[in-house]
Amino acid sequence: MKFITLQRVIRAGFLGFRRNGWLSTATTMVMTLVLFVLGNVVFVGAFADTALRSLESKIDITVYFTANAQEPQIMAVKNEIEALSDVRHVEYISRDAALARFRERHKENALIVSALEELGDNPLQASINIAAIDPGHYAAISDFLAGKKYPVVEKINYFENQAVIERLSSVMGTVRGSGAILTIILAFIAVLVAFNTIRLAIYTVREEIGIMRLVGASSWFIRGPFLISGVLYGVAATAVVLLVFFPIAWLASPKLAFLVPEFNLFTYFLSNLVQFSLIMLGTGVALGVISSFIAIRRYLNV
């Protein structure tokens, strides 16, 4: 394509976008909605992820040792647990450490403190906290430990928490799975809506496309400006959607932080702004260009 032709195609694309003001506005708005849905999918995904991870980090199982268990014996058990591939983190809490924590937690409570003094001896057990990579693995880890029948192990609290852990882990699985399906469905609907809007926009000028062909314009000379307009829809929609998301993220942030304290939407939005903008821009432009390309094809067949 000659340079002058490329220049004309780009100019015609901008001119078409400007002269068809209403149509461009409408198409941009639909595209904005599409990107808005997509942006929300991204946010909800990040929120759910943080929420789930926060819940997951709260689940663990604890192995309690008998009072007369010796440190080397406990260490032997700990090493075996650490060797398991499902285990993310293992923490040993000695009897003394457990007592120190207990004291720290209850230092305000004079009754408990004095009761401890009275007792003289350390009533607490040494324990190991185990965090699994996946909450679904707790059952296996717990079964493994129970199967070993260590003489020093007094109890494993998984069996007490079993119902809660299993329910939580199945809920997480469902949330992740349905989240992915919902995302795909929403994205699919959004793409269809955007595609149809652009198709309609091109349908209204189908006769002009035919005329252009008949007066000797090549397919690319006609198609080019529509592709440029498609790019412009994407760019304009990205700009609008970013402007809309700033106040929304700012307003929604405290409400979401109330649910999951670890999640700050506004900070998340700002720290991922470049990436987020690029996703929006990439989606918008790709959608605009591909939709225009497909929609114009049949009318060029003159």
Binding site: T5, R8, N20, E208, I211, M212, V215, G216, S218
Partner: peptide, 22 residues
């Protein structure tokens, strides 16, 4: 079969632009 969004001069010019004239 004139292009409705173009002026008379632009309609004529379009055929020349399409043909790659300067």
């Amino acid at each position: 079969k004139l292009l409705p969004t173009k002026t008379a001069a632009e309609n004529v010019a379009f055929a020349m632009e399409a043909a790659g004239r300067t």
